[in-house]
């Protein structure tokens, strides 16, 4: 069988629409995941034992079950509890809850790498703990975790393909639709793979520059 690329040229605008959704969903998920990660780390330092236990349970569940199942649970099980969440939002929630658990572990690692003396100095000058977090700890942790965070973002971009299962019309789902109309599966899947690859490659280039700029102070 020969590959006939005119089908791809025809399908490209549709695939790009899907690409846009993939980018949107992953960006939102990594941003919310970062927020969840920060809250989880703060929650683990809390005085409340129940909160700490809940957080540890959340992290073990996320790490011990397939993302695929987590997506299905958010989309199909939450409505059963009376929460009706649209596809896009379900996707973002599932991915960011998943991501947040991993990002919280990165942040914990980053926290340990910050010299205790810097925090002593901040306390000695009368800085409140919230202020120390915002001004001293967090900025340094974010720079420290930028490399693994980039990997997490790349992973999210690829994992978002799983959201096709709940009918979110992101890149993979779009590709399936295009194939349904054109019946040209090999070309469309190759084009789809190329689009994922370009996204990940571009992301890698951008973040390498970002890492360099952000870490200027570390020489």
């Amino acid at each position: 069988m020969t590959l006939e690329w005119q089908y791809v040229a025809h399908a490209l605008p549709f695939l790009l629409e899907g690409t846009l959704i993939t980018v949107e969903v992953s960006l939102l998920a990594v941003a919310l995941g970062l927020l969840v990660g920060i809250l989880v780390v703060l929650g683990r330092q809390s005085r409340f034992k129940i909160l700490r236990a809940l957080i540890i349970a959340y992290i073990s569940i996320v790490r011990g079950t397939p993302l695929f199942i987590q997506i299905l649970i958010v989309y199909y099980a939450l409505p059963a509890l009376g929460l009706d969440i649209p596809r896009f939002e379900s996707g973002v929630i599932a991915l960011s809850l998943n991501s947040g658990a991993y990002i919280s572990e990165m942040i914990r690692g980053g926290l340990m790498a910050i010299p205790k003396g810097q925090l002593d100095a901040a306390r000695a000058f009368g800085m409140r703990s919230g202020l120390i977090w915002r001004r001293i700890t967090l900025p340094q942790v974010l720079v420290l975790i930028l490399p693994p965070l980039t990997m997490e973002f790349t992973g999210l971009l690829k994992s978002s393909a799983l959201l096709s299962v709940i009918g979110l019309v992101e890149l993979t789902r779009r590709a399936q639709q295009v194939i349904g109309e054109t019946l040209r599966s090999p070309e469309v899947w190759l084009a789809t793979a190329a689009l994922y690859f370009i996204m990940c490659f571009a992301l890698g280039t951008v973040t390498r520059r970002l890492e360099k700029a952000a870490a200027a102070y570390r020489l």
């Binding site: 010299p115 003396g117 810097q118 002593d120 100095a121 901040a122 306390r123 000695a124 000058f125 009368g126 800085m127 409140r128 703990s129 001293i136 900025p139 340094q140 720079v143 102070y217 570390r218």
Partner: peptide, 25 residues
């Protein structure tokens, strides 16, 4: 209270053996 303790601390300058500058600033 935490804020009173901080106010007291702000009146004393401290210099540490290992400098403890904030490296990102």
């Amino acid at each position: 209270t935490e804020s009173n303790i901080n106010r007291m601390r702000a009146r004393m300058g401290v210099v540490f053996q290992s400098f403890n500058l904030w490296t990102h600033m």
